[in-house]
């Protein structure tokens, strides 16, 4: 603990280390949005019920509102801002656009990061598994059928290079 009563932590977010001083009760979600200004991660409920705040922590999808920032110290965090690389959309991002899996977009970061965790662990997930594994992200626009199609299309390689082929 620092003299200020705050805790010194190192958050590794999207491949870059950030030294932060945070209170013990600050969540990873608050640290991302307020300390780092990474507002692509959304708060829909604050209780882990809606999945809008899902980020990847060491490759696993976690609700950032349920993780304390101090517990995320030293872990590898990926947010929606880190999904596109080298000026190219990630295949999932491209597929979400092409298949119409984004409407208002408030759940989209949680949805895409959940999908990434799923595909990384299970590159051949079928529609049934995708439906089940993404059920932790609520979408009131009802994009679920489009999301499943988008994730399947990434598996099939249609969007592997961010376009055709």
């Amino acid at each position: 603990m620092l003299a200020s009563g705050l805790n010194g932590i190192t958050l590794r977010v999207n491949g870059r280390d950030h030294e932060l001083a945070v209170a013990a009760n600050v969540t990873l979600l608050e640290a991302l949005r307020e300390n780092l200004g990474l507002t692509g991660t959304k708060e829909g409920c604050g209780h882990g019920d809606c999945g809008a705040c899902i980020v990847l922590m060491d490759g696993h999808a976690v609700n950032a509102c349920l993780v304390l920032a101090v517990d995320a110290s030293g872990r590898d965090i990926v947010t929606i801002e880190g999904l596109a690389e080298g000026g190219q959309l990630h295949p999932l991002q491209q597929a979400f656009l092409d298949k119409g899996a984004v409407q208002c977009g408030f759940c989209s970061s949680g949805m895409m990061l959940s999908a990434k965790a799923l595909l990384d662990a299970n590159p051949d997930a079928d529609a049934e598994l995708i439906r089940r594994e993404l059920s932790g992200v609520l979408c009131r626009c009802g994009t679920y059928p489009r999301v499943i199609e988008a994730v399947l299309s990434v598996e099939n390689g249609i969007n592997r290079s961010g376009g055709e082929g």
Binding site: L38, G40, E81, G105
Partner: peptide
């Protein structure tokens, strides 16, 4: 034509500023 969302890139990269994001 099913034109892709004109604000789509902002939407999928987390760059859109919602009311909750206003600072």
């Amino acid at each position: 034509k099913s034109i892709t969302r004109v604000d789509g890139v902002d939407r999928v990269t987390g760059r859109l500023q919602y009311a909750v994001d206003t600072v």
